[in-house]
Design a binder for these strands. Structure first.
Length: 586
RNA sequence: GGCCCAAUAGCUCAGUUGGUUAGAGCGCCAGCCUGUCACGCUGGAGGUCGAGGGUUCGAGCCCCUUUUGGGUCGCCA
């Protein structure tokens, strides 16, 4: 028997045809003298019918068929009578009268039913991932993922980009995330790293003159996992020569618009909004603001410069600030929930949270007695507070803590009060990131993006005296509060790159040992270049409406970075270790 | 590394203040059933209550440790 049709593709137009379908048994309904099976393939379901009249042999065999058996069934497509139509099934107006069929493969009773309404725990799903992936919703997600990459390849191809592979076994450059290491058998005691991204190689390809490059590239980072983070993930990696920020941004906007048009049939308005990193932090307390709702941060510092309320004044005097959000209509929040919010902001290192409830009897706050009448009035004016509102204030000596805590609080309150329209797609570019940030841990400046990001021309002179103030030619593309991609114009000048390494605290020897090959390459004529990389997994999450990165990856890892299906990672034999000259020290 | 949540039948869950033989739905097995479509009816099998220790006359339930899964902070150039 040769398959003639896919199950879900049969229609009323096929009535009368003799067809052969193949697939898995979704469900069996045995009425005694009549057996209905639903047969499933990736296109959908079709009901196939067995009875003694149609074929005694087939009917007898069908008695023994169970769920998830793999069948080939041959028979005639028949229109169902009016009263037997199943409106819940795509193919519900037809069925196949089976004259002959073959069990291609038997199946044990699966640990869970292969159906979307089944609410099976993720651990079980991951252990039997091949069964989980039979479910239509999972098939749809992976199909969408495939469509996205196809659109991307199409678009980039038409715009002159070339897909070039870069190596997986590369030099470890201990800057950034923790590397996955691979021991070298040939060179005892030495290790490769798996790439955190193809960053340096794509820059070298620009120096090689390929002009426009892309790759759907696996990236590996040995860091802890999150709902949107896997150790092994995929980037849409792009690099272009002879471009500035606007060039990169505009071609990417067109690509993203094409993806949204073809996947969701949504026409995005171009160009996307652009705001500076500073503005994003000031207004939203985040470098990836969710623009689907307001509740913007307001700076109250000027009100409290001479305040008698120590907490606020102290924050301001020490270079910090006092900022707040207004949660409209939340004044009647119970005390217990306010206490929870205090705990919530503490997870972001805020020391406390001041609230003002705009109750019917006027403003109520736990710090009322510390506030002067004029201060309160100014706060309420600035916050445009009305009866029924809840003002939440955070002060700290460290502005980043104020931003971070209040930014997360804004998101949390947006969620709690249902202010987020799930059908909206709010894009923006966040630009003018700081080039460097000071690391308390390492007591030095570290690159905010990566050490190859170019500073803005007008800020280069500050590199020596005021490195924290230098802005970068960097841009992130943000959608609904998620960073879906980021990139920059790169340094293409040996001297500037050396300068950058110097600011990062590398000695010449360090820089030479780690990145000497790149510095060398710059010597032989490097074009100005820049690019971007998207998180394909996160993009797919948004386009499929999932909030869990494991759902958009066929075979993902658990929070402990394990594969529950294959049981990786696992121990290896002594022989394998010996060959690699590795001794395990537990 | 820290904090929080969860773990009881194949799956999803209930299980009262610590008290008789741990339940339900789905699934599974058997029988009946010719228009079902989450078929129906009848009957049946199925449990190391994640693991280890403790308290107690008595532990699914309380305490400690631990494992696994999830969320999160740190971390993620």
């Amino acid at each position: 028997m040769k398959r003639t049709h896919m199950c879900g593709e049969l229609t009323i137009n096929d009535v009368g045809k003799n067809v052969v379908v193949m697939g898995w048994v979704q469900r069996r309904r045995d009425l005694g003298g009549l057996i209905f099976l639903e047969l499933r393939d990736r296109t959908g379901l079709i009901q196939i019918v067995f009875s003694e009249q149609l074929s005694k042999e087939a009917f007898d065999k069908a008695q023994h068929v169970r769920n998830e058996y793999v069948l080939a069934a041959s028979g005639k497509v028949v229109k169902r009578s009016e009263e037997n139509v199943n409106p819940n099934l795509e193919t519900g107006n037809i069925e196949i009268y089976v004259s002959e069929f073959k069990i291609l493969s038997k199946a044990e009773t699966p640990p869970f039913m292969v159906e979307d309404r089944n609410n099976v725990s993720e651990a079980i799903r991951l252990k039997y991932r091949y069964l989980d992936l039979r479910r239509p919703s999972m098939q749809k997600i992976l199909l969408t993922r495939y469509k996205i990459t196809r659109i991307v390849r199409d678009f980039l191809d038409k715009n002159g980009f070339i897909d070039i592979e870069t190596p997986l076994l590369i030099k470890s450059t201990p800057e950034g995330a923790r590397d996955y290491l691979v021991p070298s058998r040939v060179q005892p005691g030495k290790f490769f790293a798996l790439p955190q991204s193809p960053q340096i190689f794509k820059q070298l390809l620009m120096i090689s003159g390929f002009d426009r490059y892309y790759q759907i590239a696996k990236c590996l980072r040995d860091e802890d996992l999150r709902a949107d983070r896997q150790p092994e993930f995929t980037q849409i990696d792009i690099e272009m020569s002879f471009v500035d920020e606007d060039d990169v941004i505009s071609i990417n906007e067109r690509m993203v618009a094409k993806i949204f048009k073809e996947i969701l049939n949504i026409d995005l308005e171009l160009p996307f909004k652009r705001i500076s990193w500073q503005e994003a932090m000031d207004r939203f307390g985040s470098d990836k603001p969710d623009l689907r709702f307001g509740m913007e941060l307001k700076n109250l510092s000027s009100i409290f410069v001479d305040s008698e309320f120590k907490v606020f004044k102290d924050a301001i005097d020490n270079g910090g600030s006092v900022r707040a959000i207004n949660v409209k209509g939340a004044a009647s929040i119970p005390r217990r929930q306010l206490d929870e919010l205090v705990e919530y902001v503490k997870t972001y290192k805020a020391k406390g949270l001041v609230w003002i409830q705009m109750s019917d009897d006027g403003p109520k706050s736990q710090i009322s007695k510390f506030l002067k009448e004029a201060e309160l009035t100014q706060v309420l004016n600035t916050m445009e507070a009305e009866k029924g509102d809840l003002i939440l204030i955070i002060a700290d000596r460290n502005n980043m803590i104020v931003y971070d805590a209040l930014g997360h609080l804004r998101l949390e309150m947006g969620k709690r009060y249902n202010l987020i329209d799930e059908n909206k797609y709010e894009f923006l570019w966040v630009v003018d990131f700081p080039l460097l940030e000071y690391s308390e841990e390492e007591k030095r400046y570290v690159a905010m993006h990566h050490p190859f990001t170019a500073p803005k021309d007008e800020d280069i002179e500050m590199l020596d005296k005021n490195p924290g103030q230098v802005r970068a030619k960097a841009y992130d593309i943000v959608l609904n509060g998620m960073e879906i991609g980021g990139g920059s114009i790169r340094i293409h000048d040996t001297e500037l790159q050396k300068k950058m390494f110097e600011v990062l605290g590398f000695t010449d020897e360090d820089a030479e040992a780690r990145f000497g090959f790149l510095l060398n390459a710059f010597k032989y004529g490097a074009p100005p270049h820049g690019g971007i990389a998207y998180g394909l997994d996160r993009l797919t999450m948004i386009l499929t409406g999932t909030d869990n990165i494991r759902d958009v990856i066929a075979f993902p890892k658990t929070q402990n970075a394990c594969d529950l299906m294959s049981d990786a990672p696992s121990e290896v034999s002594k022989e394998q270790l010996d060959e690699l000259h590795i001794k395990v020290n537990l």
